[in-house]
Amino acid sequence: MKTPHNGIFVGMLGAGAMAAVMALGGTGAQAGEDFPTESLAWVLPFGAGGGSDRWVRVMATGAEDAFGVSWRVENRPGAGATAGWQHVLEQEADGYTVFFASPTPVLTLLQEADHAIDPEDIEIVGFVSAFRSILVTKEDRFPDWDSFLEATQEEPLVLGGTISLLMGVANILDQAGAEAIYVPYDSTGEAVTDFLGDHIDAAAVTGSTAMTIVPDEAVAIINTSDIALSEEALEQMGEVPEAEQRGFEGMSFPRWVGVHPDTPQDRADRLGELLGDLMAHEGVTSTLERMGEEIIYVPRDEARERYSDLVARMRASLELLE
């Protein structure tokens, strides 16, 4: 089980990688706040070198500017990315231990019915990015969403992708009252290869992967997420219908930031504010952009709501895949 980003163009930047970030400046910590006063531990449930690792290390380069304190990045992989979560729960709920994750640990928790951690055992601070599940098909077989939907309603078609991306599609197809055969892959790359070789009917891919094969080899028939594609992506791929336009409630997979569930509200709020400042930090944003990453910042209040919604939706979609 991997996040789709692990599959394709994993920008594995190791420790010390972010020396390239030079542009500094931006907002300083506001005066009058007494939190945080010492360095924060950013716990990452993945090993050094993955997509999330790259994110947090780039973000750390702007930490002094935005937070007024430095960060320690702690890689705590293992147990389907829940070992890091467990570690956060074992620390004091003082806001000094921050958890940075993707949907992967949530997925693990949902799959293990008797897990000691509940997906809601976290206080969400904000989202910094997200990926979307885009459904791609061959133009000669299913030129658009309607033809695809009709065909799969008649006889379930075969869809491949990583688990989380398949969940995104399953969520939509379920709302449309249609079924499909979901074939899980370890990486988007493998799924796309089987798709290009006509072994499966359609593939669920990330926005960046879609851009490499659309329009030459495939057509993107629906963006199953609740986030529009970037202008650059639309320019290359042409029009891609959005789930919402078709009357569906889409789902996207965030890179989220959280703290211990018992953390005082004012501290969590403060972290949320600072995170907002950081995601507008010039040095951080320009580096992320150069690396082909997209910042999709969602502030704390909205992120909390969306997180609960996401967990419910993932739970329902997962049942379709089990």
């Binding site: 394709i8 163009f9 790359g189 992967t209 851009m211 150069r290």
Partner: peptide
């Protein structure tokens, strides 16, 4: 697979593809 379809067949190929993207060259067919 990277050169022919823009799809990396291994972690290392993915990294090399990532480096090409940073150079403004997106691997694709």
């Amino acid at each position: 697979p990277l050169l022919a379809f823009g799809i990396p067949g291994s972690a290392t190929a993915a990294l090399i593809g990532g480096a090409l993207i940073l150079q403004g060259v997106t691997p694709s067919p």
